[in-house]
Amino acid sequence: MVNHQIKVIQALASSFVEGGRGVSGTAFPKQPEKSLKLYEFEGSPFCRRVREVLTLLNLDYEVYPCPKGGTKYRKIVKQLGGKKQFPFFIDDNTSTQMYESQDIIHHLFEHYGRTGKIPKKFAHYPKIPVMALAGTIINGARGVWVDQRIVNREAPQQLLELWGFEASPFTRVVRGVLTELELPFIFHNVAKERWQDMGPAVLRLKPGKYIPIKEGKREKVMLLMGRDIQVPYLVDPNTQVRMFESAKIVNYLKKQYGA
Results as ranks from 00 to 15, higher is better:
Q85C: 06
V221L: 01
M225F: 15
I150K: 00
T26V: 12
C66W: 06
I128P: 00
L57Y: 08
L108P: 03
F244Q: 06
G113D: 11
I150S: 00
E180R: 04
W145E: 11
K84V: 15
D92M: 03
T94M: 10
W195R: 09
M98E: 08
E42Y: 12
K7G: 00
I213P: 03
L181N: 05
K220N: 04
Y99D: 02
G258I: 03
R153V: 07
L181M: 08
Y252F: 04
R175C: 12
I118R: 02
V23D: 05
Q256V: 03
F244M: 06
E166M: 05
K78C: 06
L59W: 14
K84T: 14
E154S: 10
V177P: 01
H4K: 02
G208S: 04
I186E: 05
T171D: 05
P45L: 10
R142Q: 11
F165L: 05
H106R: 14
H107R: 08
P212A: 15
D147A: 01
K209S: 12
V235L: 10
D92N: 14
I137Y: 13
M1Q: 08
G81N: 09
G82R: 07
F16T: 11
F109D: 03
K72C: 07
G19F: 14
H107D: 13
L57K: 06
I105N: 00
L253S: 01
P67F: 02
N189E: 13
G82A: 02
P207N: 07
M222A: 08
